[in-house]
């Protein structure tokens, strides 16, 4: 054996056969693939259901709400009530409470199940905000955000607005509606009127009466004079100015949003 430079022969790593390096590099690269896939899966939404190796009784042979059952022609697992039957909770025993009518004409008083107090008005205000505000606006003047958007669409070509037509939601404080009886208001909310759909399916009966009470409160408040508000003299004349500002700002914003 000839003695080469001592240093070099000591450094064993360089004496390893080439194959070891290739294998090590390959394994390191391979080890980076799973984390890359995981990071991708974590950072991007995906369209496919999760992979489900172990089923764990996750899907049991039973039906939950709104599931599909192909045994029925309409694919609904939830069945409709048999025609001519009425669920116990949906019984219409008391037309005054459930339909807003007394002896075939609109009721003029609240039914005995409803007590008009501050709680009812608060409830009515909240429910009005959910179900009526989109069209009729926060104070019922018929200028809600959906109305504003629909008016914008009307200004566009029919090919862009896809044939949008729109009837302005009524100003709930105008005389023709302020003079209506509570029964008629209740009936309109339940069954709709002309271009407005009925809300009986979305709003429980008691809440509909609460909305009626709140609509009446809005009507009274709309006509109220300064004298009827305690301490009104000292209040600054803010409200009307603010309302205009808000609607104008909203419309401007909408226009910009649409243009871009």
């Amino acid at each position: 054996m000839s003695s080469g430079p001592k240093r070099q022969s000591d450094f064993l790593l360089w004496k390893l056969p080439r194959g070891f390096f290739y294998v090590a590099i390959l394994m390191t690269c391979a080890a980076l693939i799973p984390p890359a896939l995981i990071i991708r899966a974590r950072s991007t939404p995906r369209d496919s259901r999760r992979i489900h190796l172990i089923q764990n009784m996750d899907n049991q042979p039973k039906y939950k709400g709104q599931q599909q059952n192909i045994l029925f022609r309409d694919n609904r697992a939830m069945r409709q009530p048999v025609p001519g039957t009425v669920a116990r909770s949906q019984m219409v025993g008391d037309t005054h409470f459930h339909l807003g009518t007394v002896d075939g004409s609109y009721a003029t008083t609240y039914p005995s199940q409803v007590t008009v107090d501050m709680d009812l008005l608060k409830r009515g205000q909240e429910r009005f905000g959910i179900y009526c505000l989109p069209c009729h606006g926060a104070i019922g003047e018929g200028d809600g955000p959906v109305h504003n958007r629909a008016m914008m669409l009307l200004n566009l070509a029919p090919s862009v607005s896809n044939g949008t037509t729109w009837v302005q939601p009524k100003n709930l404080r105008e005389e023709a509606i302020a003079s209506q009886s509570v029964g008629q208001l209740f009936f309109t909310i339940s069954n709709g009127k002309n271009n407005m759909a009925g809300y009986a399916a979305q709003i429980p009966v008691a809440d509909r009466w609460a909305i009626v009470a709140y609509v009446q409160a809005l009507q009274v408040a709309g006509d109220a004079s300064n004298e009827s508000v305690p301490g009104a003299d000292s209040l600054p004349e803010h409200r009307i100015v603010m309302d205009e500002d808000v609607t104008e700002a909203e419309v401007d914003e909408d226009k910009e949003g649409n243009g871009s």
Binding site: V146, A150, L153, N162, G163, T164, N195, A201
Partner: peptide
């Protein structure tokens, strides 16, 4: 029906 409250009038041909 809930969608139809608005969409009978808004974007009906979309």
């Amino acid at each position: 029906q809930t969608c139809m409250n608005c969409h009978l009038q808004v974007h009906p041909d979309s």
